[in-house]
Design a protein around this nucleic acid. Structure first.
Lengths: 95, 95
DNA sequence: ATCCAATGTCAGCGTTCGGTTACATTATCA
DNA sequence: TGATAATGTAACCGAACGCTGACATTGGAT
């Protein structure tokens, strides 16, 4: 599963939690956070703390892999990334 | 690269940024955050906001994959996760 | 050696986090 | 049907976020 938004992450976490037959309270204890936190994460809270998120994934046994290869043929940061354009524009746009 | 800590993430981001020949300011603009933020992330800031982190990875074209399959034979959340134990203990431990 | 870009550090500020506690709304089960 | 658990919501609070802006340090280039 590719994670690109907090919602994606929430889905993954919730899915795994249920698969493990854990309720939010139990999971919260495993992770070391409040039940509230679990609820919000599963709902896709965008401003959750990085470390807690990583701990949650770890607690659930969900490995997170980054940068296998950027075939990026779908959209946001796209493949080629016009470095020249970026740099140039960035420099110009100093104002 | 497996991401398990904020530091791992910082390393990945910095690496990719340099690979793309972007300076922190430019990247910050790409992501839509302050230069400060980029600096802190690259230093492994543990409490960064999830959404910003995902946006950074996205901007750098770094795909994030979670839960390919939990062959989990290495450590943190352990492989089999003793559901019974967890649930049972959790229920007991309500205080 | 000098100049400039890049990086890192500091402090102040408004906003929000995450924890806590309590309560409402389902579900599930006997 | 009633009871219990699971989930979701709300408000309060201290702590930290991320932003701004300025400044020190480093590094590469000429």
């Amino acid at each position: 599963m590719l994670i690109r938004t907090p919602a994606d992450l929430g889905a993954v976490i919730r899915d795994r939690r249920k698969r493990l037959k854990l309720d939010q309270s139990s999971l919260a204890k495993q992770i070391g956070v409040s039940r509230q936190w679990v609820i919000e994460i599963e709902h896709g809270h965008p401003r959750a703390e990085l470390a807690l998120v990583l701990r949650a994934l770890d607690a659930l046994g969900i490995p997170v892999d980054a940068g296998g290869q950027q075939t990026t043929s779908r959209g946001p940061a796209r493949s080629g990334v016009d470095i020249n354009a970026i740099v140039t524009k960035a420099k110009k746009g100093k104002t």
